[in-house]
Every structure is written in C-alpha cells, then in structure tokens.
C-alpha cells in the first residue's frame, strides 16, 4: 500500500469535519455540479501535477496526465466510499495512471531499472563537492528531469514523496534492492548534475 505524505486538512477543520465536508463535496460532484468538481480540482491539482511533472520529467506530458487523472476521477467518484481521505484516494488513482504511463514508456526504452551505468555514476558523483550554498529548487527540478526514467521514478517516490524502499518496490514492481540501488544512483547522478 502506498502511504506517502498525507493530505492536509483545511485550516481550522478537524479530521471529522474535514471528512464530512469532503463527502458533501464528492456528493455534489456525483450529481454533476461543475463548481463542486472545480473546487475538488483546486484543492488537489497542485500536488498531483507536481507528482506527474517529476515522475514524467516534463510539464507538457504532466498536463495531459493531469487531465486524464481528473477525468478518470470524475468517472470513478461513484466508487469513492470515504474509507480513505479524498486526497489519498486521488493520489493512489493518480499514481496508478502515472505508473502505467511510465511502465509503457519504459517498456519501449527498456529503462525501468537500467538507466545508469555504475562506473559512470561513480566517476560523476564522487568527484568534487557541491558549492556550499542551499540547493536551488529550480536547479534540482531541472536535474531531476535529466535522470533516466526508472531511476527518476524511484528517486521521486523515495526522496520526494517519502515512500519506503519496500513501498517503492511494490509500486514499481521491482526488487527492494533494485529500488535502493536506483535511488542511490540517482543521488550520485544528481550530485554530478548539480555541480555543473
């Protein structure tokens, strides 16, 4: 099961009130109220768009993916029972769609696990140290987009989204050891990229 950074309750609302408000919102969406679905979109699109951009490596694909996620969510809202928070339900749905896309793309390029050559990563990542300043967010996003597909997916799930290696291995369908090696290679590669 994917845990991940959990949804945040609206300010001033406890979990019970927030859950009741979510169920009410979902009910309005099910009745076809566009304004309600827009409210749901505004609450969750940022986080899901970020996940898509980082997993897919480019904003244009992520934008298309975001549309598919929310259209699919609208169709599947009938099955939402409120057992999990709406944010968690949407996150899982988004993750499954993004991963389907990543897997089919990786199957074409053969890159779900074999993105980086060990010797190159070691040579690139273990040289001089990073400049002694905070890592710039934009530089990090850019470097992330340069990582090979599989390596990037494992790194995003582990270091950005906060999943354990066991969870990353479940989600990506790879061995736990492979998840570790992919994340570790990604960090070394990022060190090389961020030094440029």
């Amino acid at each position: 099961m994917v845990t991940s950074k959990g949804p945040v309750h609206p300010i001033g609302q406890g979990p019970g009130t927030a859950r009741a408000a979510e169920l009410q919102l979902v009910d309005r969406c099910r009745q076809g109220e566009l304004g309600a679905f827009e409210e749901l979109y505004r609450q969750h699109s940022g986080r899901l768009f970020s996940l898509a951009v980082r997993m897919l490596g480019n904003p244009a694909d992520a934008e298309d993916m975001l549309q598919e996620i929310f259209l699919s969510a609208h169709r599947k809202l009938e099955s939402f029972r409120g057992e999990a928070a709406l944010g968690t339900w949407l996150y899982r749905l988004a993750m499954n769609q993004i991963l389907d896309h990543v897997r089919s793309r990786a199957a074409r390029t053969g890159q779900l696990t074999d993105g980086l050559d060990d010797a190159t990563v070691l040579a690139d990542g273990m040289g001089h140290r990073l400049a002694d300043r905070a890592i710039d967010r934009i530089d990090l996003e850019r470097a992330l987009a340069e990582l090979p597909e599989g390596c990037r997916a494992a790194f995003v799930l582990h270091d950005v989204e906060g999943l354990e290696h066991r969870e990353v291995s479940d989600v990506l369908g790879i061995a736990e050891g492979t998840s570790k090696s992919q994340v570790h290679k990604a960090r070394l590669r990022l060190r090389g990229l961020l030094r440029r």
């Binding site: 970020s50 967010r137 992330l144 950005v160």
Partner: peptide, 9 residues
C-alpha cells in the same frame, strides 16, 4: 528533494 513545494497546474 523532500521539501520541494507543490507546483501550480
């Protein structure tokens, strides 16, 4: 990486 903020769609 852990503190990257959400992007705006």
């Amino acid at each position: 990486a852990a503190s990257l903020p959400a992007l705006e769609a």
